[in-house]
């Protein structure tokens, strides 16, 4: 290397840092090299535009994450009774109230219309796909061979999961939905983690640069590297989370039912901010409803 601009090792007794006039000189010489004419400095690289954020329907959630990003995958994970479905229903309610067409891919056919109606979901704008009803041909033959009840249950789970993935693929390719939600909450983590990462990348690519919010709830993170936003929910540990007296004066006096569910959420991963993700948590309560 005969170039005078390269200094591999500092001479003994000299500092590594260049003097200011020396740096300016080097930069001017570098910019004059024809080969580097088309190379933009790192400080001038185009910044990917931040996605549009929409409300999730829960104030505390929005305060923590800024909302749900359009054109990205958002994943909510947590164990049973951690409030995943409540967040999903709230997000669907918010999206349908914005007059957006939404789709819910219900892998375990667990959607409760009464809860959704109470949360304010506009059913006219919601496409509900109930998976698991029709056995796939290959799985059916396999299930016929297995006499074991547990194996049969697992086979049904695999069928549901496969249907959910195929349906999601079709919905995302069709386009035009404001939100596509995949409910894997009833699928055991062992089954859900078998979803190939390429599927999640395909889904993420399908919603990229579209106004669709891809929303997934599951027991544990399924697509951590694809998700733009990953939250973990936990049920509240305080015993006061449960009220023995129902709220509302219209309830009969003898009725003692669940009043509210306390939820704690932690932001595990966010690709929307350039700075390192800090440990951020929130807590909110969901109100139990019952039709009178």
């Amino acid at each position: 290397m005969s170039s005078p601009l390269v200094c591999a090792q500092p001479a003994p007794g000299y500092s590594v840092a260049f003097p200011q006039e020396r740096s300016a000189f080097l930069l001017s010489r570098l910019s004059a090299i024809p080969k580097l004419a088309g190379v933009a400095p790192a400080s001038r690289l185009e910044v990917r535009p931040a996605p549009e954020m929409v409300s999730s329907g829960i104030r505390e959630f929005d305060a923590l994450t800024g909302g749900l990003p359009r054109g990205c995958l958002t994943e909510i994970c947590g164990p049973a009774s951690s409030g995943r479905t409540s967040v999903l229903v709230a997000a669907l309610a918010a999206a349908t109230q914005r007059q957006e067409a939404c789709a819910l891919v219900d892998a375990s056919d667990a959607f409760d219309p009464v809860s959704a109606a109470a949360a304010g979901v506009d059913f006219e704008q919601l496409l509900w796909v109930r998976c698991g009803g029709k056995k796939l041909a290959l799985r059916t033959r396999a299930a016929e061979k297995t006499k074991n009840h547990q194996n049969d249950r697992h086979s049904r789970m695999d069928d549901s999961l496969e249907q959910a993935l195929r349906v999601t693929d079709l919905l995302l390719q069709s386009g035009g939905f404001g939100m596509v939600a995949i409910d894997l909450g009833g699928i055991p983590y062992r089954a859900a983690r078998r979803i190939p990462l390429t599927s999640w990348f395909r889904f993420q690519r399908a919603v990229e640069n579209t106004p669709t919010v891809l929303f997934v709830i599951a027991e544990a993170p399924c697509a951590p590297s694809c998700a733009a936003l990953l939250l973990k929910l936990q049920p509240g540990k305080k015993p006061s989370a449960f009220s023995h007296q129902p709220s509302g004066k219209t309830s009969p006096a003898h009725a003692q039912l669940l009043d509210q569910l306390e939820v704690e959420g932690e932001l595990l991963h966010s690709r929307l901010e350039r700075k390192p993700v800090r440990s951020a948590t929130t807590a909110f309560a969901t109100k139990a409803v019952r039709i009178l």
Partner: peptide, 18 residues
């Protein structure tokens, strides 16, 4: 319809076993 962009109190959802 509720006005868009105004989050309301979340409702405890039930997951049904069918």
């Amino acid at each position: 319809r509720k006005p868009a962009g105004e989050p309301s109190d979340a409702v405890t959802a039930l997951r049904l076993f069918r």
